[in-house]
Design a protein around this nucleic acid. Structure first.
Length: 398
DNA sequence: TCTGGGGTCCTAGGACCC
DNA sequence: TCTGGGGTCCTAGGACCC
C-alpha cells in the first residue's frame, strides 16, 4: 500500500481533566472515585468511570452507580489556569498548535526531527513535561492525519501514548467500533447499527452514495472519507471562535417575567464583557431557551453592524425574548442562553470631532480632548477627512 | 434540586439579487 | 412578460463535541 507522508500529527488530550485537577490539588481524592459537578456530571475520574459513570450523566444516576464517589463542586477558574499552563507546554513543543477545547489540541511536529527527535520521542517528552510542569496526566495519539491522531488518543486513554505508523493505518482503524469515528454520536451510531453496521471496516466497504442516502450529504461524505482515513485538513494555527455565549439553567419552579429578564441582563453583561476583552464584535444575537419538557428553541436576529455594546445586545435580546413570551408561558422555561455569533475582529470606535483644517491649534485641542476622555494611548492613527467632516480617529479603549 | 456550560458544523426553506 | 438558474444571507433546528 502506498502512503505519502509521515505520522507527525499529535493529538494531546488531558485525561478526565476537571477530575484530575481536583485529584492533583487534594491528595485525599487520589485513587478515589471523584465526580465533578452535582446536578450533571462534568467530569469523572477513571476510578469513577469504572462504575460506568461518564460526563453529561445525571448526578442522581451517578451516585446510584457508585454511592461512595466523592462529589466536588467545579472550580472553573482553576481549570482555565491549568489549561493555560498545559498550552504553554504545547507552545514550547512546536509552533504548530491548534487548540480544540480547554483540554485538547493538535500539534504538528513535522520538521522537528533533527532538533527534537522522532514524533514518538517528542510525544513522550510532552507527556513528561505536562506531568512535571502542571501535574496532570495526558494521552497523546500520533498519526499522519488529524482524525487518526484523535482516534489513537481515544484508544490509548488514560495516560497513554499510541503511534499509528502510516503502513498500519487501516489495520488499526477497521476493527474499531463506529462510535470511535469523530462525528458519530448516538443518533448516527443507531442508524448504522440498525443496518447491521458496527465497525469502521464495514463502513469502509459501503459506497459513498449509500452513506449519503442514510446520513445526508455532508455526514455521509465525511464518514466515507474517514473510514478510509482520508483527512487532508492541516493543523490550523490561530483559529478564532465564531460565537461567544453564556447560558444559565433556572430549575423547574415557575418564574416571573421580571426574573427571566434579570437573568437575561446578567447573561448579556457577561457575554459583552467577554467580547470586549477578546476584541471581538458580532452581528447576530441568539436567544436560546429550554423548556420543562426539555424541548429547545432558538431565536436569532442579525444586526446590520457588528457590536459588543451591552445596551445594543440587550435591547436585541429583549426583543427576541418578547416574541418568545407566549411559548415561555405555555411550556415553562428552564434555561436561558444568549450568544453573539457572526463574530468579527473589533474595529476601534471612531469619534468625529469638528475640526477646522486651517487651524493647527484646533487640531491639537481636539487631540487633547480625545486623550483626556480616552487615555493617553487612545490615539493610534488619525485620518483627516476634510474641512467639513472634521477629524475621524479610531479609538482603542485604554 | 432531574438533566451544566461552552462551543462547531450542517440542513433546509425563504428572501433577495443578478 | 414569463421562466429558469445560481448565489448569498438570514433564520431555526439538529447532531455532535468536550
Amino acid at each position: 500500500m502506498f502512503v505519502s507522508g509521515e505520522a507527525t500529527i499529535l493529538h494531546a488530550d488531558l485525561d478526565a481533566f476537571f477530575a484530575s485537577v481536583e485529584q492533583r490539588d487534594d491528595p485525599r481524592l487520589r485513587g478515589r472515585s471523584v465526580i465533578v459537578g452535582g446536578g450533571v456530571v462534568l467530569a469523572a475520574s477513571y476510578e469513577a468511570k469504572a462504575y460506568g459513570i461518564h460526563s453529561a450523566m445525571g448526578g442522581r444516576q451517578a451516585r446510584r452507580l457508585c454511592p461512595r464517589a466523592i462529589v466536588v463542586e467545579p472550580r472553573f477558574s482553576v481549570y482555565a489556569e491549568a489549561s493555560k499552563a498545559v498550552y504553554r507546554v504545547f507552545d514550547d513543543t512546536t509552533p504548530l498548535v491548534e487548540g480544540l477545547s480547554i483540554d485538547e489540541a493538535f500539534l504538528d511536529v513535522r520538521g522537528l526531527r533533527r532538533l527534537a527527535g522522532t514524533p514518538a520521542e517528542i510525544a513522550a517528552r510532552l507527556k513528561r513535561n505536562v506531568l512535571e510542569r502542571v501535574g496532570l496526566p495526558i494521552t497523546v495519539g500520533v498519526a499522519r492525519t488529524k482524525f487518526l491522531a484523535k482516534v489513537a488518543s481515544g484508544v490509548a486513554k488514560p495516560d497513554g501514548l499510541l503511534v499509528v505508523p502510516p503502513d498500519r493505518e487501516l489495520a488499526f482503524l477497521h476493527p474499531l467500533g463506529v462510535e470511535r469515528l469523530w462525528g458519530v454520536g448516538p443518533v448516527t451510531a443507531q442508524k448504522l447499527r440498525s443496518r447491521g453496521i458496527t465497525t469502521v471496516g464495514q463502513v469502509a466497504r459501503l459506497d459513498e452514495a449509500v452513506l449519503v442516502s442514510m446520513l445526508g450529504r455532508a455526514a455521509g461524505r465525511h464518514l466515507h472519507a474517514l473510514a478510509h482515513n482520508r483527512d487532508p485538513r492541516p493543523v490550523h494555527v490561530g483559529r478564532r471562535r465564531g460565537s461567544i455565549g453564556s447560558q444559565r439553567a433556572l430549575g423547574r419552579r415557575p418564574k416571573t417575567a421580571e426574573a427571566v429578564d434579570a437573568v437575561l441582563v446578567g447573561l448579556v453583561d457577561r457575554v459583552t464583557r467577554r467580547m470586549r476583552a477578546a476584541g471581538r464584535i458580532g452581528r447576530t444575537v441568539v436567544l436560546r431557551l429550554r423548556f420543562d419538557d426539555f424541548s429547545r428553541a432558538t431565536r436569532s436576529h442579525t444586526l446590520p453592524f457588528g457590536t459588543a455594546h451591552t445596551q445594543t445586545v440587550l435591547a436585541t435580546a429583549r426583543g427576541l425574548l418578547a416574541v418568545s413570551m407566549p411559548m415561555i408561558e405555555r411550556k415553562g422555561v428552564t434555561l436561558v442562553g444568549v450568544a453573539v455569533a457572526n463574530l468579527q475582529n473589533d474595529v476601534p470606535a471612531q469619534l468625529v470631532l469638528p475640526f477646522d483644517r486651517s487651524s493647527g491649534s484646533a487640531l491639537d485641542a481636539a487631540l487633547d480632548e480625545v486623550r483626556a476622555r480616552f487615555g493617553p494611548t487612545a490615539i493610534t492613527r488619525a485620518v483627516l477627512l476634510g474641512r467639513d467632516q472634521g477629524l475621524t480617529m479610531p479609538l482603542l479603549p485604554d
